[in-house]
């Protein structure tokens, strides 16, 4: 019996994809957990960031640091366009507008007319190469057993997790600052904050931009180890991020990191166990039936979490604001 999958699944905890999901979820925590904005379009922010990074590196030949700046600029712009008209809407209206905006982005970049710029339905490939030019780690193989990485793979992991930790630190400091107290106040009672003379709209917009930038950077990080596929940015990406957020704790800073690690390790483990069961004939399924099961697990987990443990693993039940 080959149990390598256990190690590979544990290795998922540190993969760049896990880091990208964690980063995007930190952005979502800023939106939903701290400000109370029901943003269902985080996949749109990731798409905007990913495309900004890929287009500037591949089509305009910008070096990676400038491409990251372009990513931040694009996410800011998207947040402004989205936020100016919608931040005055009720929570569930905002949810529908953001989910629609994310779908508009995904469908627009896919059109054949834009193939020159966005690669159409096939997307863009090779943004990771430009990023690897920055790699300071000498050639060679690092790690042990099945978890051995090339210099480029190691560089990507180090960079990705450094970015996540940096984001955690900034959010941690911001939430403890006067600014953080105001946005938490907006989450609890918008009118009360308004009556104190605070410009609620401006604070909401700042939170939307900040969380959106984290989402955009996550989108860039997400495409470094793979090619950019427009269909990766569908609505279910946002739903995955919500599952991660509710798993770790929607009102915590480190919840998204723990949530993302658990999410991906559990998914890989379940995939591995299913493969094992199917190949040995224990489970009466075919290998093509294996794929859907991970989504069923996510869906059931999301529904159960929000009802039975809305505060997540790290959260405080007293701070669960959305159960009213």
């Amino acid at each position: 019996m080959n149990l390598n999958f256990v190690w590979l699944a544990l290795g998922e905890a540190l993969s760049p994809t896990t880091a990208a999901y964690a980063l995007a979820t930190i952005g979502l925590v800023v939106h939903f957990g701290f400000t109370g904005l029901l943003n269902f379009g985080q996949a749109g922010f990731m798409a905007v960031g990913g495309y900004a990074f890929a287009i500037t590196t591949l089509k305009l030949d910008w070096p990676a640091p400038f491409a990251f700046l372009a990513t931040i600029a694009a996410a800011t712009l998207f947040a402004l366009i989205l936020g100016i008209p919608t931040l005055r809407l009720r929570a569930d209206y905002l949810a529908i507008v953001t989910i629609a905006a994310a779908e508009i982005i995904r469908l627009s970049v896919k059109t054949a007319e834009l193939t020159e710029i966005t690669g159409g339905a096939t997307g863009l490939n090779g943004a990771g190469r430009v990023f690897n030019e920055l790699n300071p780690i000498p050639e060679g193989r690092y790690g042990f057993g099945v978890l051995t990485y090339t210099a480029d793979q190691l560089w990507l992991r180090v960079f990705g997790w450094a970015l996540v930790l940096l984001a955690c630190l900034i959010v941690y400091l911001l939430i403890r600052s006067p600014w953080g107290r105001v946005i938490k106040g907006i989450r609890e009672d918008e009118d009360a904050v308004r009556s104190l003379g605070k410009n609620v709209f401006a604070y909401k917009m700042q939170a939307l931009i900040f969380g959106g930038i984290l989402g955009g950077l996550a989108g860039a990080l997400f495409i470094l180890p793979r090619s950019l596929q427009p269909d990766n940015y569908g609505t279910q990406l946002t739903f995955f991020l919500y599952t991660i957020m509710l798993l770790g704790g929607a009102t915590t800073v480190f919840g998204p990191v723990i949530g993302s690690m658990i999410f991906w390790v559990v998914l890989s483990l379940s995939d591995g166990l299913l493969s094992l069961g199917i190949n040995s004939g224990i489970l009466p399924l075919t290998t093509t039936q294996q794929g859907p099961i991970r989504f069923i697990i996510v869906g059931v987990a999301l529904a159960l979490l929000v009802v039975f443990r809305p505060q997540g693993l790290l959260g405080n039940k007293k701070e669960v604001f959305f159960n009213a």
Binding site: Y242, Q289, I293, F295, I296, G299, L302, F322, N323
Partner: peptide, 26 residues
């Protein structure tokens, strides 16, 4: 009956949608 709020209800419906959809694929 549990007086679950509207936002959690919406998220439950999302989870239900995801799970049901892939049960269909299964």
């Amino acid at each position: 009956r549990r007086r679950v709020g509207l936002i959690p209800l919406m998220i439950v419906s999302i989870g239900l949608a995801l799970a049901t959809r892939y049960v269909y694929v299964l």
